[in-house]
Design a protein around this nucleic acid. Structure first.
Length: 574
RNA sequence: CGGGGCGUAGCGCAGCUUGGUAGCGCACCUGCCUUGGGAGCAGGGGGCCGGAGGUUCAAAUCCUCUCGCCCCGACCA
């Protein structure tokens, strides 16, 4: 493709509303343009990158035995009613009406459609297993879209759904997808980790996220510095063994202490002259509207997702001041477990081994010293409620956990029968018994993968594409296209590369060299050949990799072969 | 949804406090010149100052409402 004929509107300055580097560079490099919040047009370069990701995903999915299909973007409310999600999904689901005032939504995911399809088309165990996928535009009306393609409202996603007759087979396919995903992200040239994840509202029994490591990521993952344990912090567990068995400590008499205006843990511990781990935080939550109490050690943070999962509720939020007043008979900041009635108390494992600790007194400006469990209060149970932090012990080995930030680009779930039961997707087994299909589902954010690649591969001058995702493999920079000799040599390199099947962008614009080099670095094509009068005189042209600082000089006659070699070298590495 | 901020040329911004001809840099067009890292000179085009209402002789500027966008939080396959 000739640059002079392409739509590549690069920007010298960074648009002010772009926060993260991938968003800035995609805008500046002429890859995307915003149409509305979280909704983008993919310009030719951006679209090419998207197609590169799609191609890798498609090939690996097909190699793994999945088949591609395409479901509609607009789905009926009726179908969503069958799974119960029309009422449950919330505002993220963009609902609309057609001219007959019938309800529809824009599909944020397609479990309903695919399960309905399989329910009607598949009757026998002989037809299973099956894994179907699509690459399609999804719409989720995010509360706060941000970071360009990393968190859009409209976005391209690969979603796959598998159907099985047995749990074992569903788990086999889960592992099959796990391996396929590893290959996909390896082929994309990304540094990533597969981590254990919370299943969230989608349900199901277990799940892994594929996370591209990047400081700008919205996810935090904990990983062990010794073994291969890695989990999203929503799910991550630290070793609880360290808290057991309880030390022998003589319980002392409980004591009221006046703590005027001291509410937060740091204030109370400073006031009392003790470390924060001598306190127990008492948090009042509303779980589906009912007040519950969570107890956690003063220096720990509660992981709300763990609490939510333990209670099995669908909504969990910190209680408002009125509720706190009602439950504890005190303003917030002075809650404690002692004397609480008619309320469930969920305590973290760390509380189990604490003695003579400090809690709120359930009275304004009062805390209690020398509180001991069983003697002074009892709990519903002890659970793992803590959010892990750097330095916690690995639950699997003697190593320590580290926290890294990352971008979730893929997520696989073993779903079970949640949707197949709700939607009546059953089959007859060999004994003539009707059973619900066991399902799995597997997603990859296509645009987000491209954005993640930029987050991981850029420098001060622009994008540094990994070869497999680059919109073009090679850029020919023709310094003076008005010089016949320069132009003709450029053209011959252009056509011989194309004959070899190399994807080439030829910068044939009549621009000053500085402009061309700046644009070249910005858009980030991996290989750049510079054709200028100087090189022709010397019989050698400059071939420079975007990822390397220095260029290499290659004899004019060997340019095409040398470049073919560079590209092949990349492919072989994968 | 709560808190904060911003809407002025394609992009980045000034002007608003104290009302009176709408500006700057980049980009764009023409010409000259220049050609290995975003050149130079000269000339030029482009704006309902987000929208609606109000105050005023007069509003980008003051007031009210509204829409959009961004950031923090809450939320989130």
């Amino acid at each position: 493709m000739k640059y002079s004929k392409s739509l590549i509107p690069t920007l010298r300055e960074t648009p002010s509303d772009a926060e993260v580097i991938s968003h800035q560079l995609m805008l500046r490099g002429g890859y995307i343009r915003k149409v509305a919040a979280g909704i983008y047009t993919y310009l030719p370069l951006g679209f090419k990158v998207l197609k590169k990701v799609e191609k890798i995903v498609r090939e690996e999915m097909e190699n793994a035995g999945a088949q591609e299909l395409l479901m509609p973007m607009v789905v009926t409310a009726e179908l969503w009613g069958k799974s119960g999600r029309w009422d449950l999904y919330g505002k993220e689901l963009l609902r609309l009406k057609d001219r007959h005032a019938r309800d529809f939504c824009l599909g944020p995911t397609h479990e309903e459609v695919i399960t309905e399809l399989m329910g009607t088309e598949i009757r026998s165990y002989r037809d299973l297993p099956m894994n179907l996928f699509q690459i399609q535009t999804k719409f989720r009306d995010e509360v706060r879209p941000r970071f360009g393609l990393m968190r859009g409202r409209e976005f391209v996603m690969k979603d796959a759904y598998s159907f099985h007759t047995t749990d074992e087979d569903a788990e086999r396919e889960y592992m099959n997808m796990f391996e396929a995903y590893k290959r996909i992200f390896e082929r994309c040239g990304l540094k990533f980790r597969a981590v254990e994840a919370d299943t969230g509202s989608i349900g199901g029994s277990f799940s892994h996220e594929f996370v591209v490591l990047a400081e700008s990521g919205e996810d935090a993952v904990a990983s062990c510095d010794t073994c291969d344990y890695a989990a999203n912090v929503e799910k991550a567990v630290a070793k609880s063994k360290r808290y057991l068995p309880p030390e022998e400590v003589t319980p002392q008499a409980i004591e009221k202490v006046s703590t005027p205006g001291k509410k937060a843990v740091d204030e109370v511990s400073a006031f009392m002259g003790v470390t924060e781990d001598k306190l127990a935080k008492t948090l009042i939550y509303l779980a589906d509207g009912n007040a519950v109490v969570a107890l956690i050690r003063g220096d720990h943070e509660l992981n709300e997702i763990k609490l939510k999962n333990i209670m099995g509720c669908s909504e969990l939020e910190l209680a408002d001041p009125e509720t706190v007043q009602k439950v504890t008979k005190a303003p917030s900041g002075f809650a404690g477990p002692v004397g609480l009635k008619d309320v469930e108390i969920y305590a973290d494992h760390a509380i189990e081994v604490m003695h003579n600790f400090i809690t709120g007194g359930n009275e304004k400006d009062v805390h209690l010293k020398n509180v001991n469990r069983d003697r002074d209060f009892s709990v519903t149970g002890f659970y793992d409620l803590k959010t892990v932090v750097t330095g916690d012990e690995c639950p699997r080995c003697e190593g320590k956990l580290e926290i890294h930030r990352g971008i979730e680009v893929g997520h696989i779930f073993k779903l079970g029968t949640k949707y197949s039961e709700a939607m009546g997707a059953t089959f007859l087994d060999a004994d003539g018994q009707e059973k619900p299909m066991i399902m799995g589902c597997y997603g990859i954010g296509v645009g987000r993968t491209a954005a993640a690649a930029i987050e991981q591969n850029n420098d001060d001058n622009g994008i540094v594409w990994p070869m497999p995702l680059a919109p073009y493999e090679v850029l020919i920079t023709t310094l003076n296209p008005k010089d016949d000799e320069v132009r003709e040599l450029s053209e011959s390199i252009y056509s011989s590369l194309r004959k070899k099947g190399v994807e080439v962008l030829w910068d044939d614009r009549d621009e000053r060299p500085g402009v061309k080099f700046k644009d070249a670095d910005l858009i980030g094509i991996p290989v750049r050949v510079t054709v200028g009068a100087r090189g022709i005189k010397e019989g050698k042209l400059e071939v420079k990799l975007r990822s390397e600082k220095d260029a290499r000089a290659v004899a004019t006659s060997e340019i095409a072969d040398a470049i073919e070699g560079i590209i092949k070298n990349w492919t072989d590495k994968l």
